[in-house]
Structure formats: C-alpha cells, structure tokens
C-alpha cells in the first residue's frame, strides 16, 4: 500500500465529502453519498487486514473531528470522538469477513460493500449517539436518523458502482495488490 498515494486520495475524498455532500443531498437534504467510505471500501477490498482496520479507524476519527455537533438552544458546537471511528471499524470487520465471498473485480461487489458496509457503520453511529443524547444536549431522533442514513447507504452504493468502474486503476495507484483473475468470472474493467 502506497502511503503517500493513500494520503492524497484521502485528502481528495474528505474535500469532496465536506464540499460536495450538501450539494448532492437528496430527500430534503438528508441523504448523501460518502466519498470517504467509498474510498475506504476500495482500500478494504485489496489491502492487508491490519492496514484495512487502521485505515477505517483513521478515516472514522477524521470524520468525527470534522463533524461539529450542534448544542440545543445555545450558540455552541463541540466535537465528539468515537462514533464514526468505531462505526467504521465495525464496518471494516464486516467488509473483511465479506471480501472472501465476493467477486472482487466486479463493480457490483464494490457497490454492495459500499451500501451494506455504510449501513453497518451508521447503525453503530446512531446507537452511540442515541445513548449519548440521554445526557448530551443534542437534537437527535434515532428513527429519523436511521431512515436518512439508510437513504445515504443506497446513495453510497450508487457511488460505489461508479467508483467500481475505475477501481482497477485506482487500486493500482494506491499500490494495492490486484486480485488474480478467476477463470470462471469475467472482469468488467
């Protein structure tokens, strides 16, 4: 895994996440694709397990740090460390257990992992924030959040499908191992 190339790709993904997400949001501005998670999945499909876990953890930690929480009633915001870092870590474990069962070079596989993996991560985020909301002054409706994040998971799956089409060159650029072509399957790129 090329550390420098991964760093550059992560910077671009975070810039897209922070700058473009609002513009692409659907459903009253509450469901949007996650560029960071899609990149993490591209890495997860081909990188060694240890690197996958640490990459997801760091991406999650950065997402937590760039997610200021709105305090109810007051003119105040604060950062919470943990929800996304743990959510992404659980998603990483899920992807690692799934990647042996899928056709890695098929864009549909990437779309599936993006959608389901993102949903797994969001369930953890919602669970932790729901627990926190009992003693932290934040506006939080778990059912609504799960619905919106479910929409986000579908949207991320669609993004995964698009990224799946360029996953080959992207994986090479990140210095990741290309899985050997199976005789029984036909690659789409």
């Amino acid at each position: 895994m090329n550390f420098l190339a991964t760093l550059v790709a992560a910077y671009v993904a975070f810039a897209l996440e922070l700058g473009l997400r609002q513009a692409l949001a659907l459903g009253g501005g509450n469901a949007a694709p996650s560029f960071v998670f899609a990149l993490a999945i591209v890495i997860a499909v081909a990188a060694p397990p240890g690197a996958v876990l640490w990459t997801f953890l760091l991406f999650g930690l950065l997402t937590d740090l760039t997610w200021p929480q709105e305090a109810i009633g007051g003119v105040r915001s604060f950062a919470i460390v943990g929800p996304y870092a743990l959510g992404y870590l659980v998603a990483a474990q899920f992807v690692l257990s799934m990647r042996a069962l899928i056709i890695r070079r098929n864009p549909l596989s990437l779309a599936f992992l993006c959608g389901v993996g993102y949903l797994v991560a969001q369930v953890v985020v919602v669970a932790l924030l729901t627990f926190r909301s009992s003693y932290t002054p934040i506006e939080w409706n778990p059912t609504q959040q799960l619905l919106w994040r479910g929409g986000g998971a579908l949207y991320t799956a669609m993004l995964g499908l698009l990224i799946g089409l360029i996953a080959g060159p992207l994986t090479s650029a990140l210095g990741l191992h290309q899985p050997p072509q199976r005789r029984s399957t036909r690659a789409l790129y």
Partner: peptide
C-alpha cells in the same frame, strides 16, 4: 464547506 455528517447543518 459543511460538516462530514449531514445530521449537523452547521
């Protein structure tokens, strides 16, 4: 820019 999570409208 906005937040990395849409739950925050900041």
């Amino acid at each position: 820019g906005a937040s990395s999570d849409l739950a925050s409208g900041l």
